[in-house]
Design a protein around this nucleic acid. Structure first.
Length: 478
RNA sequence: GGCCUCAUCGUCUAACGGCUAGGACACCAGGUUUUCAUCCUGGCAAUCGGAGUUCGAUUCUCCGUGAGGUCACCA
């Protein structure tokens, strides 16, 4: 058998927009494969359609990969042994290969106008037949001068091949056609350029979405004509939106992965979540570190059916990663997510607050609304009481009486968490009230929030003077 | 319409042809010195349909049905 070639994988997006979780998955799988084999992960821009280029997309794609920790070893901005890594800068290479295939008699100039080809296509569609250009292949095409499309002269036949994910596939000659290699604007098509580049860049594994699987027989035909050994191929199913069974797309509100990063989703959690969409190691393990993913990932355990993207599961997973972080580490990471009012407070105070909310934080951008009352006196919100399922049943003077008693009890406290806990419990007995009523009332008065961390802990952090002032304020507004 | 692929709880998924189809998210209930959350316990919930092979089928075969992809001078 042949000697094992070094593993070189690639992610080859066209710079037409941002990367969402569906798009990043093929990049992640390629990256995992390369890391696992101590090979190389390559980024290549496929910008052969100038019309579709979106300003800023290149930088955005590179930022997205780096933000997730999917660093590439070779790429447009860092170069490498096969530079350049941008297809629009590699036209000479495609020209060389195009000439080679013309010389071998396996490509020809397309003499038709776009309108004529379109007419052929419509005729086939009207007859409910698949469109095959080769049914109209000219007998004596003009010599290719670069102004016409250059078409592959295909050799239709049966193919069977192995796909690392889909298994053994086979097709008949009816799917092979004369596709365009070089467009009339001089740029290669994806179909031609990626084959040339993967070969030149010594790519060992191609991982891509299932929209390409129907084209593989055509690629195999071209590999033969070019006398290139095809790389290992893996076709991963699409990730679908939460609603319906369509491929996840920006129209479904598929978010930019950088938006998730900006909202305070941890790269580790995102990577874990995305990998688990379609892959698992066969055990009941749900949470995998990056290192575990690298060592345990295998294409053969990637599922063949599409998976829906369920953000609730991502939320859970991110929360579980946040809870595992050391407080100091978390503190450093959330620096930009505090409410504005927190600027007046020191690190020690903010760290105390963070310690209280860590276990309930699902993503960093929630921090502000979860902690605002530790920093700012909020206006009274009557709806917190009128909307409370138990408090709303109590008459006004009883609420007032409970708050007065609470105030008296808290005035006597030194406001350590321990002392507060004791006094609150005594108050519970003295008033013979249910905790759900008494503590909710105190919570609402002191935080103007429906939920907070443990009451005693929260009061201890807010402090005596401020807590009592808020109680008074609530009393004055009952 | 041709060709290709797929099909297990609502969702992500596990199950050499062999216990009662397992786990996780979500949801519901109870518990954890009290809310929300965390944590713990319990609950709800699935093999698309029909034949066939077999002692035995989620698993293998065939036929349906449903879903997705593809049939561009886009990738």
């Amino acid at each position: 058998m042949s000697v094992m070639k070094p593993v070189r994988t690639r992610f080859a997006p066209s710079p037409t927009g941002y990367l969402h979780v569906g798009g990043i998955r093929t990049a992640l799988f390629a990256w995992l494969l390369a890391k696992q084999a101590e090979g190389k992960f390559v980024l290549r821009f496929e910008d052969t359609d100038q019309k579709r280029e979106v300003q800023g997309a290149r930088q955005h794609l590179m930022n997205s990969l780096r933000a997730l920790g999917l660093d590439y070893d070779e790429g447009p901005d860092i170069g490498g042994p096969f530079a350049p890594y941008t297809q629009s800068e590699r036209l000479d290479t495609y020209k060389k290969w195009a000439q080679k295939i013309v010389d071998s008699g396996r490509a020809y100039a397309d003499p038709y106008t776009p309108a004529q080809v379109q007419a052929f296509r419509e005729k086939a569609q009207a007859a409910k037949q698949p469109f095959l250009y080769r049914n109209h292949r000219p007998d004596n095409p003009p010599s290719w001068d670069g102004s016409q499309p250059l078409r592959f002269k295909s050799d239709p036949k049966n193919y069977q091949w192995h796909d690392e994910v889909m298994g053994d596939l086979n097709t008949g000659p009816e799917v092979i056609d004369d596709f365009v290699l070089i467009k009339s604007d001089g740029f290669p098509t994806y179909n031609f350029a990626h084959i040339v580049d993967d070969n030149e860049m010594e790519i060992s594994h191609i991982i891509r979405g299932q929209e390409f699987v129907a084209s593989v027989p055509n690629y195999l035909n071209l590999y033969e004509a070019l006398e290139i050994e095809p790389p290992t191929m893996a076709t991963v199913p699409h990730i679908m939106g939460a609603e319906g069974n369509k491929k996840l797309s920006k129209r479904d509100g598929a978010k930019d992965v950088l938006d998730y990063i900006r909202d305070g989703f941890l790269p580790e959690a995102l990577v874990n979540f995305i990998a688990s969409l379609g892959w698992n190691d066969g055990t009941e393990q749900e949470v995998f570190s990056r290192q575990e993913l690298i060592s345990k990932f295998s294409l053969s355990r990637v599922g063949r059916s599409g998976a829906h993207f369920d953000e609730r599961r991502l939320l859970w997973m991110n929360g579980s990663y946040i809870r595992e972080l050391a407080l100091d580490d978390l503190y450093n990471q959330v620096a930009n997510y505090w409410p504005d009012e927190s600027q007046a407070y020191d690190d020690a105070y903010k760290k105390q607050v963070l310690g209280l909310v860590q276990e309930r934080l699902k993503f960093f951008a929630e921090l502000s609304e979860l902690t605002i009352f530790f920093f700012k006196d909020l206006p009274i919100k009557p709806e917190l009481i009128s909307g409370h399922k138990q408090l709303k049943k109590l008459p006004q003077d009883e609420l007032k009486s409970l708050l007065e008693q609470s105030k008296t009890a808290l005035e006597a406290s030194d406001f350590s968490a321990q002392d507060l806990t004791e006094r609150l419990n005594q108050l519970l007995e003295a008033t013979s009230q249910k905790p759900a009523i008494l503590f909710s009332l105190i919570r609402i008065a002191t935080t103007q929030a429906a939920a907070s961390p443990s009451l005693a802990d929260s009061l201890a952090v807010i402090g005596k003077e401020r807590s009592l002032a808020r109680l008074n304020d609530q009393l004055a507004n009952l």
